[in-house]
């Protein structure tokens, strides 16, 4: 099957509404190397945001005053400037600061400061836990990851996360299929995690695996690529377009280059600007800028849709035979 150009599905080109969210990739260094990772992050990666770029991020936050600064990686906490960045953003009064935490970093030697630091600064934690059953999680993220994730969640619960501090979990499919209904799955997660492990959390976000990078390689190797793309294309849902994260977000790579989203970042598709770098933000059109799209955009627009904050269109969707 030839995948129809994503642009052919749009009645008019996608443009930005402004910058509600400043998403910052602090680097590809991670203590894990998960099979589905679209960043290809891992313990041997050396690409990491330097202090000069971190200063540009702080200046950018002061300039655009985003509602949310979303810190991601890799494991963002492994960046040596992580604490400096968070403290500066807090001093600026950014309303929401989010740390995308893989949970196991909380148990790594040398990182026992992370949980207390996050709680002290009231940082929102959005944590990866791709399923409520250990066997499924370990198959995707490595042996023993589920039990260490549970241990990490217990530490966070002990500090008030899941109660007075926001703790949200992220589900993603463990292979070549689409996520379940977000609300239904949240109920399942809450019941199982509470009954079996005594874990509390606030919301579950379901995210579609993007057919790029390490996951694309898996799809091709397992001969699932065509079928997966067919599924994404056939379940294209125009109801997701207004809420797409790329419309109100700007994504900053570890080297300061700017993208419409985290996935464009991994595909090296910088924003439509002459100098797409955080240092040049003042000269970049933030509202009404055309968004660069390609085949992977079917991932965010299939079924209930997908974003860094989960499903976009929660209307009931007819099940396909």
């Amino acid at each position: 099957m030839t995948v129809p150009a994503f642009s052919s599905k749009l009645q008019k080109p996608l443009t930005t509404y402004g910058v509600n969210c400043l998403q910052v990739n602090l680097g590809k260094l991670c203590n894990q190397a998960c099979k589905h990772c679209h960043v290809d992050a891992g313990p041997k990666r050396t690409e990491i945001m330097d202090r000069e770029t971190v200063q540009h991020i702080i200046a950018a936050a002061e300039m655009v005053r985003p509602e949310l600064v979303d810190l991601t990686g890799g494991a963002p906490e492994m960046n040596p400037h992580f604490r400096e960045l968070v403290e500066a953003l807090r001093d600026l009064g950014v309303p929401r600061i989010m740390d995308r935490c893989n949970l196991t970093i909380l148990l790594e030697p040398g990182f026992d400061w992370v949980a207390n630091f996050l709680a002290k600064h009231r940082i929102e934690v959005t944590a990866s836990l791709p399923f409520y059953v250990g066997e499924h999680v370990d198959r995707q993220r490595g042996k023993g990851v589920f039990s260490r994730s549970i241990e990490g969640l217990r530490i966070l619960n002990g500090l008030g996360y899941g109660d007075s501090l926001p703790l949200n979990l992220v589900y993603n499919p463990q292979g070549a299929y689409l996520p379940p209904d977000q609300d239904d799955l949240e109920q399942l997660y809450k019941r199982h995690l509470a009954e079996e492990y005594g874990i509390r959390f606030n919301e579950l976000y379901t995210i579609t695996n993007m057919p790029i990078a390490r996951f694309k390689t898996y799809l091709e190797r397992s001969e699932n690529y065509t079928r997966y793309m067919n599924k994404l294309v056939s379940r294209f849902n125009p109801g997701t377009l207004d809420g797409l994260m790329c419309r109100s977000l700007i994504s900053v790579g570890y080297d300061g280059r700017l993208y419409d989203c985290d996935f464009n970042q991994m595909l090296d598709m910088t924003i439509d600007a002459e100098q797409p770098h955080i240092s040049q933000l003042r000269d970049i059109m933030l509202t009404g800028r055309p968004i660069r799209t390609d085949d992977h955009c079917y991932g965010c627009t299939a079924g209930h849709g997908s974003s860094c904050g989960g499903a976009l269109d929660t209307e009931d969707e007819a099940i396909a035979v």
Partner: peptide, 15 residues
Amino acid sequence: DAYATGCLEAGASND
């Protein structure tokens, strides 16, 4: 074929 995948897409576990 359809419902093995369908079960996963509905949040069912292998068990």
